[in-house]
Design a protein around this nucleic acid. Structure first.
Lengths: 179, 179
DNA sequence: AGCGATATGTAGCACTCGCTACAAGGGCGG
DNA sequence: CCGCCCTTGTAGCGAGTGCTACATATCGCT
């Protein structure tokens, strides 16, 4: 019966694409399996249960996001904090990263609801972003560590405001930011 | 048969309590109805359909949140932006407002996923908070409007970081904030 | 008192959910 | 070539979903 011997690794890209479009928190096995060209039966077989599927997807998506970010982020340092902030906000609004933002708020919501898996993923994603920011703070910044944390907080606040349709507030905040 | 003649208004408080504990985005009618001492049948009767129930709940919860916030927020202006920020963050970490935070990220996630009802609710909540902030900016602030938007962005970023277990970042950001 | 509108309980429909039991095909080592 | 194991399909279970049909109880009004 076996035609192609699909491994978990084979399935993940297609499932990730489905999840990026339809969300991950409430995803159900049958549509997910169909999107990957297999059956719910096989997802359970490969990943044990639904939670296993989601865990694997979160891991895989974190890698995808990191790669996408790495590709989009410029390496030249900005002259000051405000410009650093402006560049990051511009990049994270990139269409190819946009589906990740929708997913991101799902991860945050699940974290806030107490889901350990999602929280761990979210927490490490923030660590990743913070690390990049620290490494790309303007030269001569008096407090790169603190500044990076301040910028990260502003970035996330801006993105939340974008998500609820109040990018006007985020833009005004950027203007008012003295960096 | 009718025992108590429950009106939609009678049902809302109990339903709100249930939703604050169990989430609103994926709430299902039967447990919700049981929590309110009625049946799914009656929820549909009173609110038309599930969406009607959720709409009514969002409205009611927005009112609850506003009232809780109004009760918790002090009226004396802070000496500077940083202190204003610190006070707000302290208040929104209040236990009685905590369940609302969990709900809030659900609302944000649904907004990001394109749900119009949730987005409208989230957007107006941000408007509410912004209005309060503008009215409570420090005396003599050079740019109260811009400053309020900057603070709101920082507040929301901090709360997101809290939600994913990275309050360490939010606290360092507060320290690094020059207001 | 009687009648119509309002309110509520019961049963059920058609569907999806995660997951499992069973059987069987395909690959590989002996 | 045989037999075992890994993989996969089919069918289905029990529970839960939003919602509806129908019957009936209760209230306000005349």
């Amino acid at each position: 019966m076996a035609k192609s011997r699909m491994t978990p690794e084979t399935l993940l890209p297609a499932m990730a694409a489905h999840v990026l479009e339809h969300g991950i928190a409430g995803v159900s096995l049958r549509p997910l399996a169909k999107a990957a060209g297999t059956s719910d039966r096989m997802l359970i077989y490969h990943f044990g249960n639904r939670q296993g599927v989601i865990d694997a997807l979160l891991d895989y998506l974190a890698g995808l996001y990191e790669a996408g970010l790495e590709a989009a982020l410029p390496s030249e340092p900005a002259p000051n904090r405000k410009e650093t902030l402006r560049r990051i906000l511009e990049i994270t609004a990139t269409p190819q990263l946009a589906p990740f933002m929708r997913l991101w708020w799902e991860v945050v919501a699940a974290s806030a609801a107490g889901d350990a898996t999602f929280r761990k993923s979210a927490s490490s994603t923030m660590g990743l972003l913070l690390g990049w920011l620290e490494a790309h703070m303007p030269e001569g910044d008096p407090d790169p560590a603190g500044g990076a944390r301040l910028l990260l907080t502003l970035i996330e606040g801006s993105q939340m405001l974008d998500a609820v349709g109040r990018s006007d507030i985020a833009e005004a905040a950027l203007v008012a930011f003295e960096g």
